[in-house]
Design a protein around this nucleic acid. Structure first.
Lengths: 413, 413
DNA sequence: TAGCCTTTTGTGAAAATCTACAAAAGAAAC
DNA sequence: GTTTCTTTTGTAGATTTTCACAAAAGGCTA
């Protein structure tokens, strides 16, 4: 068989990624795709009919399907790719429709900019071809870098606008519309502000990991992203595939757990404000999200599964109530009495009362939480009513004293 | 038998009531007492050992025992006395220790100032003696009037002080102490402000009926009384015989029902603030009492049995919450959705939800209130959760939406 | 240490609540 | 007018909750 002279076809400059990917196909005789670090598709070679479903899915949706990404993480493929300089062979994964393929990271100064994926035929690529792929990756670097630069420039332009939007600088809806138009930004029909709080300042690298997770989650459509020290703010809509507001709850859970799993970034707390139509409510939604974060910090147990302002319930008003109490110097007489009793008898009737109400007045649940016998709790509740002079059978008194109890927790510590 | 010449012993002026009452005894040969309209004892003749227990009780406590008063009302004695000019014979009432006696009202210009009571012996008073008693009553009039005048003058002196106290004019406790001293008023150890709202302006006559009820109730010790148009304000302590704060609840119920029963004054609403020690809290206690009245007006059903601020429960905060909602233009998304659903399907899920929570999430109670089958309610609650996107199993969401529902009721109408 | 009071735990029967299923009635859609 | 979806009501067994009573344990005081 006659071999072509060994001239390196990638030692030239390419006009764009499309030209490069076609060149790869010509030289390796396999279909190729180029993705950025968020697995968004940027170029793909024309291919024969015969290709695998993962590739088709990627091309259709312009993005690698979530289940494929998840699997690649689980199998350790992505982490390995991020660390390896050369091409990497990935054995086929049947159930997500992934045939054998070879991938390589596109890098610039140790920073990963994207990936080249090549689907292998029956005939596997040989060593020389794999080395050729490395050259292709080098050739891709300036093109990918340009892509990121463009994006970054655009980003810088609108960052301060977004910040102003979130802090209520624009009161007028028309003004906001114009500004969107000026900046050439598409205004989503509906939006929700998400806020995340990290344990340390968000670095450039973390920012990438963040936008990686957002893009790959497929749960929400993120429109804008703002980073401010330890805080990350997203303006997003539910993903078309997920119908309602539940999407945000899911996304936040996903985001927090995956930041920990994939990137070992622990202790991220996330929240969402109400979804609104008009962007003059951006500040409101942001404030709501912040309120959720603040309350979660104070009441981690109570709000463990709460991410959305809509589920904040009575905690929305706790701040208000606490301030009122303080300004009036009001203390619920029953609380005062119970506290005195507790101090004198080393009991904990106050806590008992709080847990009892928090368990929706369910004796069994509350007894379990308190590690006492049901009848013990029964007895205590009777005593609490007597000592505090309260009628726990009355829902309004019950809610009232519960609010007072919770409001107390707002200022101590 | 030799009869004394018919010279009228009461046609002279008496130095005080004691002199008069002794004169009655001398002439009628029966023990006599003089009371004011509040059945407070002002003078009694020295008596033989043989007298009835009602009289002894009256002398000991300086006031006619409550059970005796109640009985005299029930038997129609007091109303009749108030209407009759001459002396009235009251047959004995065994079970409250009341022997046969004769009574007469002391009057001035149709206004009753008090009563003279005479306990009869075996030998009943004859007609002439009864007429003599009428003269005694006339003789008593100027003395009783002086008594009232003194009281009235003293009252006028401190009325504006009290009003200032209640409206927070005095911030300084020492200043208040001094003022009490200047006015020669005894400052009670603890006090509670009670507020009553009448349907029409309080007349002079009603004022007397009011102070009558206060004095005879024996449930509270009233220290001061202020009347302002339709409003009656008391500064009181629990009666020594009644131990704790429950006294006020009892008194208010008693007062409202007896104003209706005895004097046909309907629609009185009463309330009490918290009990405090220091009088710089007078305004607070008063404001609390007013708040109870205001909320009772808005939520008559919910607060039907609530008179004391301590039992106002969550309604303490409703005003605050409503204002907050209004200023933020916040509407709970679930409420909005349910309201829309109700309008579209002519259902009443919102009301269902409110009743359900108000019945402490008890399906049976709530179903009864709504006149539907338990399972119907069950079904509705499930639908409410779905449509509103709320988790009614979560107490915090439940309280939250309940507060929002109640707060809505604050401004409509 | 005994006696008294408060608190905790155990037991079991009565009362209630929950759950699933199904029929029937009403409303809305075609 | 028929069909479909929503809503209401009924029945019954399983499960939970409530309540009364009593024993035991712990604390405090004389």
């Amino acid at each position: 068989m006659y071999e072509m002279p060994q001239k390196n076809p990638f030692k030239k400059s390419f006009f764009d990624l499309k030209e490069l990917v076609d060149c790869i196909q010509e030289n390796l005789l396999c279909p190729a795709t180029i993705e950025d670090t968020n697995h968004r598709l940027h170029a793909y070679s024309s291919h024969e009919d015969d290709t695998d479903s993962a590739r088709i899915g990627t091309i259709i949706s312009q993005r690698v399907p979530e289940k494929v990404i998840n699997r690649l993480w689980k199998e350790g493929v992505i982490p390995k790719l991020l660390q390896t300089d050369g091409a990497l062979r990935i054995p086929h994964i049947e159930d997500i429709g992934l045939r054998d393929r070879v991938a390589i990271a596109i890098r610039k100064n140790n920073e990963t900019l994207g990936y080249i994926w090549v689907v292998e035929d029956q005939k596997k690529l040989n060593g020389a071809q794999l080395e050729l792929l490395q050259d292709a990756a080098v050739a891709a670097t300036p093109l990918m870098a340009k892509l990121y630069q463009n994006r970054k420039r655009k980003e810088e332009n609108y960052q301060d606008f977004l910040w102003q939007l979130l802090t209520g600088h624009y009161k007028n809806l028309e003004e906001i519309h114009n500004k969107f138009y000026d900046l050439n930004l598409k205004m989503p029909e509906r939006f929700t502000v998400l806020a995340f709080c990290f344990e340390q300042d968000i670095t450039r690298k973390m920012e990438e990991q963040i936008s990686y997770l957002i893009t790959t989650s497929q749960k929400i459509t993120n429109h804008f992203l703002v980073v401010m020290d330890e805080e990350l703010i997203l303006i997003a809509s539910p993903h078309p595939s997920q119908p309602d507001e539940k999407a945000f709850d899911d996304f936040i859970s996903f985001f927090v757990s995956e930041m920990a799993n994939r990137f070992s970034i622990q202790g991220v707390r996330g929240s969402a404000g109400t979804g609104y139509q008009d962007f003059d409510k951006a500040q409101t939604s942001y404030q709501e999200a912040l309120k959720v974060l603040k309350m979660k910090e104070r009441f981690p147990e109570e709000l463990e599964n709460v991410h959305h302002f809509r589920h904040l319930g009575v905690f929305r008003y706790l701040n208000l109530i606490q301030k009122d109490q303080r300004s009036r110097r009001y203390e619920h007489p029953a609380i005062a009495k119970l506290e005195a009793y507790d101090a004198l008898h080393k009991s904990n009737l106050l806590q008992t009362l709080e847990v009892f109400i928090q368990q929706d007045s369910n004796m069994n649940d509350a007894a379990k939480k308190l590690f006492v016998h049901t009848n013990t709790l029964h007895y205590r509740i009777k005593r609490i009513s007597e000592i505090g002079g309260i009628r726990l059978t009355n829902i309004h008194e019950k809610i009232g004293i519960y609010l007072d109890l919770k409001a107390r927790k707002m200022d101590d510590k």
